Amino acid sequence: MSTPVLADSVRLTDDGVEILDRRVFPEQRVWVHCGGVEDVAKAIEDMVTQSSGPYFAALWAMVLAAREAAHLEPAAARAHLDAAGERLIATRRTNNHLRKAVAAALSDVDGQAGEELVATVLAGARAGDERYRSRSAALGRHTADLLPDGATVLTHCWADLYLVELVRAAADKNVSYICTETRPYRQGARLTAETLAEMGVDTTLITDGMGAAVLAEGTVDALVTAADRVTMDGHVINKIGTLGLAVAAAAFDVPFHAMVQAPDRLAPTAADVPIEYRDGREIVDRPGIRGHYPAFDITPPRFVTTVVTDRGPFDPRRLAGYYQEVP
């Protein structure tokens, strides 16, 4: 099975970071050049890249920050890197991928300067890239194990490498996929559906308002989405609209499997996760009408069947076991 375009949509170059513009994909394949950390931060804020894209963008942006700081003394260089990391993390705070990317890039930085500093950050970023991809592959395998042969899966928004690896792992199960449009950015219509079709699996696109009706038909075997973050008490934070689908799935006895590499130990409860609100004008920009746009919603654990991690599936109320299984 070939690697889809969106599985490699952020690239480090000699003079910057190139990011495939997901706002116009698949109609156009435009690469946005970012010459520095601030350019990458703006690209993330402006939705040039979404889902796991910001993780990879932040990894390579930290390499740009190291290049910028190569002429500085060690203390000043570290301060520059820390400031760059803080700027990147601030771009999308609901998902904790950015924090992890910055930590990966800086994991072995300890007093280096010059080209040694650049090489150290580059090695950390490469290790972070490899680790994310390998954990996503494990996550895909564990999720595929939960699906029966011939399953029909309903998904929402763009689960990125999680979905790609699920499709690969379930290739011999003849799984078909139904994806929502995912308003207002339509990631499901433009990213999910395009990638599923590119990978050669049976793909159906529905509008966001059809989800409950499709679940009521009795033909869906599982609701499967990514999670931008999962709290230690089992709340699933994901793209707005996930909650409604999860409630409908529970009403019609359809299991909901939420995919995340790991629950977040820094978020004991949903109150510990900041929910991003985007400009309402991204929904409507007409006089006399106010747009309301929370980018994410929170699904309580009672509506979640399984939280699937890179270490296997867990009951959402027993996520502490994730950290107890492996030292």
Rank of each mutant, 00 (worst) to 15 (best):
M210H: 13
R29V: 13
P26C: 06
A70E: 15
Y277F: 14
G114N: 02
R93P: 12
A193F: 04
Y185G: 00
A151E: 07
T195M: 14
L166Q: 01
H235C: 09
A197L: 15
L6M: 01
H292K: 06
D160F: 05
D228N: 10
V308T: 14
R229N: 13
S51W: 00
E130C: 02
A105V: 06
V48C: 09
E45D: 14
T269W: 02
M47G: 01
E130H: 13
V326W: 14
R23F: 02
P327R: 13
L266D: 14
A226K: 05
A320S: 13
L12G: 11
A76M: 12
D39W: 15
E68R: 10
D279R: 05
A159C: 10
P255M: 05
D39E: 14
I178E: 01
V247G: 03
P148C: 10
R229F: 08
A222Q: 09
D272T: 09
V24N: 11
D46Q: 15
V118Y: 02
V102I: 10
T152Q: 13
K173E: 09
D110Y: 01
F256R: 04
D46V: 03
F252A: 10
N96C: 11
V30I: 12
I44S: 04
F256W: 04
E325V: 13
I237L: 15
R29D: 10
Y277L: 09
R318N: 13
G53S: 02
P294I: 00
L266W: 12
P255T: 09
C34P: 02
A65I: 08
R131T: 14
V260L: 11
A104W: 14
A262I: 07
I89V: 13
G200N: 12
H97E: 08
R135H: 15
A57I: 08
A79Y: 07
V63T: 04
A169C: 07
P316D: 01
T91W: 05
P313Q: 08
T152G: 01
R278N: 00
L223S: 00
D110A: 15
M199N: 05
A250W: 07
R29Q: 12
D82A: 12
H257R: 04
F25Y: 15
I178M: 05
E45I: 09
T13S: 14
F296D: 04
V153F: 11
D8V: 12
G209Y: 10
E181M: 04
D310G: 07
K42R: 13
V109A: 09
A83R: 13
V224A: 06
T204W: 14
V220C: 08
V308E: 14
V273F: 09
V32I: 15
A249P: 04
